[in-house]
Design a protein around this nucleic acid. Structure first.
Lengths: 197, 197, 197, 197
DNA sequence: AATGAATGAGGGTTCATTCAT
DNA sequence: TATGAATGAACCCTCATTCAT
C-alpha cells in the first residue's frame, strides 16, 4: 500500500464518517461518499468489500481499544466502587476522543452488523458489570430494574457530555462541577442499596 | 372532507407512523405505507404534498399541544422552582402519552424538516426557559454551561424512563425512588447556583 | 389489467424471450429488454417481481401444459411401447410449437430457478418412465445405463429436429423418412432387451 | 518468451478454461481468472489483447489439429463410406481427448467470436463433407435435408457419449452395443439414398 | 514485464413522485 | 376523488479494460 492509496483509503474513511453521521448508514450514498473523497465509485471497492465494510473500518479500530479499556475500567471500578469517578473519567475521555465513532454506533448503524449496538452495550456489557458491582457492594442481589435504570441514566448522562458540543476541557470542568450534584445523592443510593430489600 | 377521506387520511397517518418508527423516515417506503393503509400510491398525494408532509401531519398536532402545555409548565415552574417535580411529571405524562410521536421526532426524523428536533428542543426551548428560571431564582445570570448540562441530563433521564419500557405507573414509582438519588444533590446545586459566580 | 398493461406485459415477455435466447438469462440486460419493449426499467417491476420472474412467466404457461401432456403420452407409450411413434409425434409437435421456450429451458436458464432443467427432465422424468417401460417389456430390470443412453440419444435426436430450423411440415416428413432408418434397429433393440441379460 | 512468462500464460489458460466451463464466457470474471492464476489483472493484458483472446487461445490450438484431422477422416470416409465406423471412432477419440475445449465451444462461447460454433460446425463442415460423401456413394445429389438430419443426429449421439460421463473404454463398448441398434437401419438408409430420388 | 489502483459504464433493483384515466 | 401504471434518477455493486509506475 503506497502513500497514495493510503490517502484514498483515509479520504474514504473521512467522507464515509461524515456522510454516515449526516444521513445514517442506509441513508448515506456511496456515490456521494466517493465523490467527496475525490474518487470514482468503482475505486471504492479496491479498498472495501461493501458499504458495510467501510462502516466497520471506521469504527472497528476504536472498538478494539474500547473493549480492552472497558475491561480495565470495570475491573478497577469493581475493586473501588465508591471512587470510580477517576475510572469513569478515563472512559469518558476515551469516548470523547472518539465521539463520532460512538455516535455512528449508537445512532447511525441501522443496516450494518453493528445495528443495536447501544442496547447490546448497555444490557450485555454495562448492566452485568454494574449489577455484579452493586451486588458485591450490597452483599446481596440488588433489584435488577433499579440497576438497569441506573446504568442507562448514567450512560446517557455521559453521552450528553460527549454530544453536548463541549470540548474535553469543558467536560472535565463540568464533571467536577456536576460531582457536587451527584455525590450526595450517590452516597444515598449506595446506602439504600445496602439497606433496602 | 367526508368520512371516507377521513378514514383514508387516518389510515395513512397510522401506517406512516408505524413504518417511520420501524425504518426511519428515509428508510420507510411510501409504497409500503400506502399498501398497509389499503390505499394506492396515487391517492396518497390527494392528502399529502410529499412524504415529508405525512411525517409533519403525524407529529404536528401533538407538537401544537406540547408547545402550549410546555409554556404552562414552565410558567408554573418559574413560580415554584423548588417543587417543580409535579410540573415536570405533567410534562413526562404528556410525553409518555405521545411517546411514539416523540420517538419519531428524536430518532426517525432524519431527512424531514424536523431533523435535529432534539437539539432544537433542548437548546432552543428547554434551555432558555430553565435558564430564565434559574437566573430568577439566583437573582443573577447563572453559568449557562451548568444550566445547559442540567437541562440535558434531566431530559435524558426522563427519556430513559419514557423509553425504558415502563408503564406510566412504574415511571411514577421510579421517579419517586430515584428522587432519593437526586434530591440531595439537587439541593446542593440550587445552593451552588445561589452562591457561586 | 387493461389492454394497455396487457400489451406492455406481452411486449416484455416478447423482448425478454428474444434477449434471453440471444444472450442467456444472466447475459441478457433488463435495460435492453425494457428498451426493446418500449418501456422504462422502472415499469418492468410493475409486471414482474424480478428478472427471474420474467423468465418464469415466459416458460411456465407452456410447462404447465407440457407436464399434463407428458403424463398422457407416457401413459399411452407404456400401454403400447412398440407403436409409440404416434405418441411421440404428439410430444414433438408440442415441443416444436414451443421450441423457443424449450431452448430457454435447456440452454439459457443458467441463473434461474430452472437451471439444470434438461438434466432433471432427462434423469428425473424421461429416464424413470422409459426404464419402467423397458422393464415391463423385457419382463425383468434392464440395464440402467443402456436405457439412460437410449433416452438421452432419443431426446437429443428430437431436439435436432426441433432446433434444426425445420418447419413442422418438414419435421413430419423427416420423421417419416427417418422411421425407415430407426424402425429396423429399434426392433432389434427390443429383441435384445428381451433376450440379453 | 522466457519460462516464467510461459508459466503465467499457461496458468491463465488453465484458470480461464476452468472459469469459462464453470460460468460461461460472459459469466466468468477476468479478475477471478487472474486471481486463480496467481496473476494481477494488469499482467493479463501482457499476454492477451482482451478476454475474447484468452478464450481463443484456449480452443484454437485444438481446433487447428481438429481441422487437419477431420479432413483426413472425411477423406478416408469418402473412400469407404460403409465402414467409416473406424474413422468416426478416431474423431470421437479426438473429441473425447479434448472434451473440455469442445464443451467450451458448444456451451460456453456466447459472447466470443466462436458463438454459434456448433451450428457452423454442423452446417458448414460436417454437412458438406457428408453430403459430398453420400452424393458420391449414390452417384447423384441426394436429398440435402435427410443428409443434414443424418449428420446432426449422428453428431448428437456421439456427443451424448462424450458428455455422458463415460470413460473412453465405456464409450467404445457402448458404440459397439449401440451398433446393434443402428446398423440395420443404417443399411436401409444407404439403400434408400441409393435408390430414392 | 508486471503491477494493481482507477476508471466509468453497466448490472438488477427500488424509490418518491406524476398523470392520463 | 382515486387509480396504479409509468417515470427516470438513484441505489449498491461488478465489470473489462487502461495506465502511471
Amino acid at each position: 500500500m503506497n502513500s497514495k492509496s493510503f490517502d484514498i483509503r483515509a479520504a474514504l474513511l473521512k467522507s464515509g464518517k461524515e456522510q454516515f453521521l449526516l444521513h445514517g448508514f442506509e441513508g448515506a450514498s456511496l456515490r456521494t461518499i466517493c465523490r467527496e473523497a475525490g474518487v470514482t465509485t468503482g475505486a471504492f471497492y479496491a479498498y472495501f468489500d461493501k458499504k458495510d465494510a467501510l462502516f466497520a473500518a471506521i469504527v472497528e479500530p476504536m472498538l478494539e481499544r474500547f473493549r480492552v479499556m472497558y475491561n480495565g475500567v470495570i475491573g478497577r471500578a469493581m475493586a473501588d466502587v465508591k471512587n470510580n469517578c477517576g475510572n469513569e473519567l478515563e472512559a469518558i475521555e476515551f469516548i470523547c476522543a472518539h465521539r463520532d465513532e460512538f455516535r455512528l454506533l449508537f445512532d447511525c448503524s441501522g443496516g450494518t452488523r453493528y445495528s443495536g449496538f447501544r442496547e447490546r452495550l448497555l444490557d450485555g456489557l454495562f448492566f452485568p458489570s454494574y449489577k455484579a458491582c452493586f451486588d458485591s457492594l450490597a452483599g446481596r442481589p440488588v433489584d435488577a430494574g433499579i440497576v438497569r435504570l441506573f446504568v442507562r441514566i448514567k450512560f446517557t448522562q455521559y453521552m450528553e457530555l460527549v454530544y453536548g458540543g463541549y470540548t474535553m476541557e469543558e467536560i472535565r470542568r463540568l464533571i467536577r462541577q456536576y460531582a457536587a450534584f451527584t455525590e450526595a445523592g450517590y452516597m444515598r443510593l449506595i446506602d439504600e442499596i445496602k439497606i433496602a430489600p
